[in-house]
Design a protein around this nucleic acid. Structure first.
Lengths: 127, 127
DNA sequence: TTCATATGTGAACAGTTCTTCAGATGAGCG
DNA sequence: CGCTCATCTGAAGAACTGTTCACATATGAA
């Protein structure tokens, strides 16, 4: 206890601060979580992942679906692959990608639900 | 139908592509969603928001909780405020912030649940 | 093998983001 | 009023990100 923490930061509610800091996840978990959110923080990658929600697609179809160049898609997929968010299945010279992270799928489902719901509550935005 | 879309992209499964594109949310919704994820894609902001999960805190306590400088906290809070993720209550010269977005709270809860769960499934990471 | 095709990669560039520093604002106190 | 303290802000620089272009790899067909 009584960790000085190196920072000369004033504190108002010391008890709350201590309690919140105790529950704060480890730095590594926070970084991992932030990274996952970061993967979803790009409209292009979001389009790719939403496209994969219903099943696997090959790279060229993902390009068609997302409107991105095939190179951009390949770079994006490499990033997603590196984080085990998608998985590739090769068949001949084609590569079929699919979602491979249940947590990310939940986040995507939640996002879709939110978008659809906001189309109800904010119909002025139109389709 | 038969939109050329300007892009000369080959397509393998034209039917799937058409179906997926039909369900694809509007560009604006995708951009909004990506922005929200982007707000959560930073360990510092994540610490601030997790700190607010249990109730409001003033800026200096948020700095203590997150280990960030008060200036960095203020900048982060301004960003979150601009996106209506947090809300400020002023009392004298203090500013008390609290979460103000049910959707973001859900995402945070989901993240916390995932972190706690992964501590069970990957105990080697320790606390 | 040679060719065409599907995907993957590296380098470079533009745009964005995060932090810090210095100072501004604004409230309370004497 | 002048002073202090809590918060906010703008500017500047470093670091990161996403895209493009050119090329590499690899598979299947001829």
């Amino acid at each position: 206890m009584a960790e000085p923490d190196g920072c000369a930061v004033r504190v108002v509610d010391a008890e709350r601060v201590a309690s919140v800091r105790e529950r704060m996840p480890a730095e590594r978990d926070l970084a991992d979580t932030a990274e996952v959110f970061g993967l979803l923080a790009d409209p292009g990658r979001l389009r790719l992942l939403l496209g994969l929600l219903e099943g696997e697609l090959c790279v060229c179809d993902l390009a068609a679906v997302s409107g991105m160049s095939e190179s951009a898609v390949s770079h994006a997929l490499r990033l997603l692959r590196a984080h085990r968010v998608v998985k590739a299945r090769r068949s001949g010279r084609m590569a079929y990608y699919r979602l491979d992270d249940a947590h990310v799928r939940m986040l995507l489902d939640l996002a879709v639900a939110h978008i659809e719901h906001s189309e109800v509550t904010h119909p002025e935005r139109g389709a």
